[in-house]
């Protein structure tokens, strides 16, 4: 139906390679979700983001 992959689908595909990192980040947030502030889980997020960036690059 769609001629080419939409950006969000490429995004989703790359993120799907990073379930472990996403889970660690999610756990960090949810562990105490009443006191979430900026960059509370920045380390976990950067790992997730690096994984995503690597996965997005690797696909080309």
């Amino acid at each position: 139906m769609q001629q080419k992959t939409r950006p969000i689908q490429r995004f989703a595909q790359a993120v799907s390679k990073c379930t472990a990192e996403a889970s660690v980040y999610g756990k960090c947030i949810v562990a105490d979700y009443n006191s979430v502030h900026k960059d509370k889980c920045v380390n976990e997020f950067m790992k997730l983001k690096n994984c995503y960036l690597a996965a997005a690059k690797g696909r080309k």
């Binding site: 950006p7 969000i8 995004f11 993120v15 990192e21 996403a22 889970s23 660690v24 980040y25 999610g26 756990k27 947030i29 949810v30 979700y33 997020f45 997730l48 983001k49 995503y52």
Partner: peptide, 20 residues
Amino acid sequence: EMGAIGRDVLLANEGIYREL
């Protein structure tokens, strides 16, 4: 716009939604 910031939030959202 799916700009840099939007993308970060969507990425974070995926992990949190799944966990929560």
